[in-house]
Amino acid sequence: MSRITVNEAIAQAIAEEMRRDSSVLMFGEGVATKRGELVAEFGAARVRNTPLAEGIIAGTAAGAAASGLRPIVDLLFAPFLCYAMDEIVNSAGKLRYLSGGQFRFPLVVLVQSGAGWAVGAQHNHNLEAWFVHSPGLKVVMPSSAADFKGLLKAAIRDDNPVLFFMDLALGYQSGEVPAGEHLVPLGCAATLREGSDVTLVSYAKTVQHCVAAADTLAEQGISAEIIDLRSLKPLDEAAILASVRKTGRIVVVHEASRLCGVGAEVAAFVAEHAFEALRAPVRRLTGPDTPAPSSWPLEQAFVPQADAIVAAARDLVGTREHA
Rank of each mutant, 00 (worst) to 15 (best):
Ala118Asn: 09
Phe165Pro: 04
Leu163Val: 11
Pro142Leu: 03
Gly120Ile: 04
Trp117Asn: 11
Trp117Ala: 12
Leu163Phe: 12
Gly101His: 09
Gly101Arg: 06
Leu110Phe: 05
His125Ala: 06
Phe131Ile: 08
Asp147Asn: 12
Glu176Thr: 13
Ile88Thr: 11
Ala145Cys: 11
Asp159Gln: 13
Ser144Ala: 15
Pro106Asn: 05
His125Gly: 12
Val109Met: 06
Leu110Ile: 04
Pro142Lys: 10
Gln122Thr: 14
Cys82Thr: 15
Gln122Met: 12
Met166Thr: 00
Gly114Cys: 06
Gly120Pro: 09
Pro178Ile: 02
Glu176Pro: 11
Ala169Met: 13
Val89Ser: 02
Leu152Cys: 14
His125Thr: 13
Met166Arg: 07
Ser143Leu: 02
Val132Asp: 01
Leu168Val: 10
Ala92Thr: 03
Gly114Trp: 03
Asp158Trp: 04
Ser113His: 00
Ser144Ile: 13
Gly150Ser: 06
Val139Leu: 04
Val89Thr: 11
Val111Met: 07
Gly100Ser: 03
Asp158Thr: 08
Pro161Asn: 08
Ala169Trp: 09
Phe105Arg: 08
Lys149Met: 03
Gly136Ala: 04
Lys94Tyr: 02
Pro142Val: 05
Asn126Gln: 14
Asp86Lys: 10
Phe164Arg: 10
Lys153Asn: 02
Ala154Cys: 10
Lys153His: 05
Tyr97Leu: 07
Val132Phe: 09
Phe164Trp: 08
Phe165Met: 11
